[in-house]
Simulated scan of single mutants.
Amino acid sequence: MRRIGDTAIAAVTVVALGSGVWLLGPGAGPHTPPPQPSAAEGRPDPGEERLEAPALPPSPPTRIRIPAIRVNAPLMGLALTPAGSLDVPPAGQKNLAGWYEAGTTPGETGTAIVAGHVDNTEGPAVFYDLGALRRGAAIEVDRRDGGVAVFSVDAVEVYQARDFPDEKVYGAAKRPELRVITCGGGYSRTTGYQGNVVVFAHLTGSR
């Protein structure tokens, strides 16, 4: 059951990882929408991705750190909902992210999935600044075995819900890869966030 087809997770996080309600609420001044990635951070040619590290044995992750955007958050396990989409962390816990525990663990061969809220009704949440990441930024994942898997960002992209590329995001990989996902792609009062920000990364080290 550990690898129940990653591509069967259909458009997992659209709308569910952000409310945007705080953008519309009263306050001392205008609220700032979360940053969105520029086209320059799109997926590079494979030839640009030179440094790789050997795969690690399976071990559940416990924490994710992204120093460039000041993320340091515990990880909880996420399952699929009855509808086949990925469940999400409790919205009230702003500094909490989750990983798809029926899939690949971060650091082993395959595609590991981490998701977290961009905001909640009170304001920015754990992955509010995910769209500001740049290629080459480091992502560190603490593992239950005491090790740390270190990933390098290959690309940061934003997709509208109708164009979400399930295979590209969730498809199997021949090396250890990581996807970090939150809401993004603009905001509408009637439908909420219009899509998702997705970070693509691969394993470049461990300690």
Rank of each mutant, 00 (worst) to 15 (best):
G5S: 09
D6L: 15
A8V: 12
I9R: 01
A10P: 00
A10N: 00
V12S: 06
T13L: 04
L17H: 03
G18H: 00
S19Q: 04
S19R: 01
W22F: 12
P26L: 07
P26M: 02
T32K: 07
P35C: 10
P37Y: 11
G42W: 03
P44V: 09
E48A: 15
E49H: 08
R50S: 10
A53E: 01
A55I: 04
P58S: 14
P58F: 11
S59I: 01
R65Y: 09
A68K: 08
R70T: 13
V71M: 08
N72H: 10
N72G: 08
A73N: 04
A73P: 04
A73R: 05
P74A: 13
G77H: 09
L78K: 05
L78C: 09
A79D: 14
T81C: 00
P82I: 04
A83S: 07
D87A: 15
Q93E: 08
Q93M: 05
Q93R: 00
K94M: 14
N95D: 06
A97E: 02
G98A: 07
E101T: 10
P106R: 01
G107R: 01
E108K: 03
G110C: 07
G110Y: 00
G110D: 05
A112V: 07
V114T: 06
H117M: 04
H117A: 07
V118A: 09
V118S: 11
D119C: 06
T121S: 13
E122V: 08
E122H: 13
E122K: 12
G123K: 05
P124L: 09
P124D: 10
P124C: 09
V126N: 03
F127R: 00
L130F: 11
G131N: 07
A132E: 06
A132H: 00
L133W: 11
A137C: 06
A138G: 02
I139V: 15
E140R: 10
V141P: 02
V141T: 02
V141D: 06
D142F: 09
R143Q: 06
V148Y: 03
F151Y: 07
S152F: 01
S152E: 09
D154K: 01
D154N: 10
V156M: 02
V158H: 04
V158M: 13
V158E: 13
Y159W: 15
Q160C: 10
F164I: 05
F164M: 02
D166T: 10
D166F: 02
E167M: 14
E167I: 14
E167W: 15
Y170Q: 10
A172N: 09
A172S: 12
A173R: 13
A173G: 12
R175I: 13
P176M: 05
P176K: 00
E177L: 11
E177N: 12
R179G: 11
G184I: 08
G185Y: 11
G185W: 10
Y187D: 09
Y187C: 07
S188G: 04
T190K: 15
T190F: 15
T191M: 06
T191C: 01
G192Y: 08
N196D: 13
H202A: 05
H202T: 04
L203Q: 08
S206T: 09
S206K: 04
S206Q: 10
R207M: 13
R207K: 13
R207H: 15
R207L: 14
